[in-house]
Write a protein that binds this DNA or RNA. Structure first.
Lengths: 234, 234
DNA sequence: ATGGGGCTGTATCGCAGGATACGGTGGTTG
DNA sequence: CAACCACCGTATCCTGCGATACAGCCCCAT
């Protein structure tokens, strides 16, 4: 049994009082292990600190850039704008995560955009400055590889679950992934049905419908605004 | 206008004679730039060569392993077996590509399986042996990062297109990606409708139907067994 | 020569999810 | 306090995909 705080705006009833308190908290869909963070911070003097206002763009899809970012505080939404104008939310990167390394290292235009959703502080690294650091600290290269490969894993897993047509499977994948971000502590995630729809490739209406159905089937439960996953391996 | 050789078993007619000749050729959905390949081959004495029989398993989903592989010749199918038993084909990795680095570097169990579809030769590297090489040759670390990030890009792109519900968009994404593997030369890709279905998350019947429709709409064409993409940017 | 297996082509049926619309509720802004 | 906005809940309609079944074709093994 895993509990994740899903601050949905209103779940079959009026807003609970605490929800308005929770909203401004930082809610990320990602976290890195502390040893990875420590290894990266060992080299923070290679980068330079940047502060972002709410809704400020960090980088845009199509840009050419060799920069990547360590998020020190705040929340960065990474997404892809499709040709038809709709948005696919890839991740909400919170403090202690890395973003933008994909296009920085493969030297091709950005395949996603990143924008701060709340005032944020990031450390900007340039790939060209890393070669010396790699020579002195091979661990650093290993750590960056580890991060890149972790993202591969998440993307592959999401891809796998996208081949299921039933929205229920897609939503459960999202919730289980959120629960894995930090299974020990209770973290809060604030998503609208619209955002869930955009992350799972369904429609807003279907998210509402599916959440109802999942609750009726007992696969998820709501306690106040807290979403509870019921898993086989209890 | 881009042409890719898609050796479909039979396209509205009897098998063309040349198709039976083409079949044994190596048909991969991936290729790396030659400078990347050269950089990796500089360190090939770190790895050891392994030969695989047809349908031999290289690694299995769930395994714990710090090994990754450079494909010297042959063809490796990388796929995920879903809980319901169905298979999602991620890639067909041909000569000059890398596979298995995802789980090798992030130190978690394999999220995919890899099996040779034809007799193949791979070079097996262990991540633990790389630290020294990274110190001597920072470029090596950069190149591995580039490969890992390229895969991120492909996976993100596939994820993006999976959010489209129409099978037509999903198929076109696959074809365009295949065409990009090597736009200059004409490469052959041999896929059954079943495999296409498994790569795009639709059913076999729908693939057949959609191919018909795309041809009627003029978005693709067939010349013998060669599939021709008609793009806007002609 | 013959039968079996793998693949494509096609038809039918049922149903789930997208599109759309509208109402309700709470928060926000001035 | 009032008007507006963002979000959730729900109903209706309809398209289009999945499941299933079957036929035809080619290749290959025996």
């Amino acid at each position: 049994m895993v509990a994740i705080w899903l601050a949905l705006w209103s779940l079959n009833g009026p807003l609970e009082h605490w929800q308005t308190n929770v909203k401004p908290a930082v809610k990320s869909t990602w976290r890195l292990q502390s040893d990875i963070v420590r290894c990266i911070l060992r080299h923070k003097e290679l980068g330079k600190r940047r502060t972002l206002r709410a809704s400020e763009l960090l980088y845009n899809q199509g840009d050419e850039s060799r920069h990547f970012y360590f998020v020190e505080s705040g929340l960065i939404e990474v997404s892809i704008i499709k040709i038809d104008g709709t948005e696919v939310v890839l991740e909400l990167m919170g403090a202690g995560t890395i973003c933008g390394e994909g296009a920085a290292f493969d030297k091709l235009p950005r395949f996603s955009r990143a924008a701060a959703t709340v005032p944020s502080v990031v450390i900007e690294f340039a790939t060209g400055d890393l070669m010396n650091a790699f020579r002195e600290d091979g661990e650093f290269a290993m750590t960056l590889l580890e991060v890149a490969c972790l993202k591969q894993r998440i993307l592959a897993s999401r891809l796998e679950h996208m081949t299921y047509r039933e929205p229920a499977s897609r939503l459960m994948e999202l919730f289980e992934r959120l629960a894995e971000v930090d299974p020990s502590s209770e973290m809060t995630v604030s998503l609208t049905h619209e955002q869930i729809a955009s992350m799972t490739g369904t429609s807003r209406v279907t998210v509402t419908r599916t959440l109802q159905k999942l609750r009726e089937e007992g696969k998820i439960g709501f306690d106040g605004g807290k979403l509870i996953l019921r898993r086989e391996d209890d």
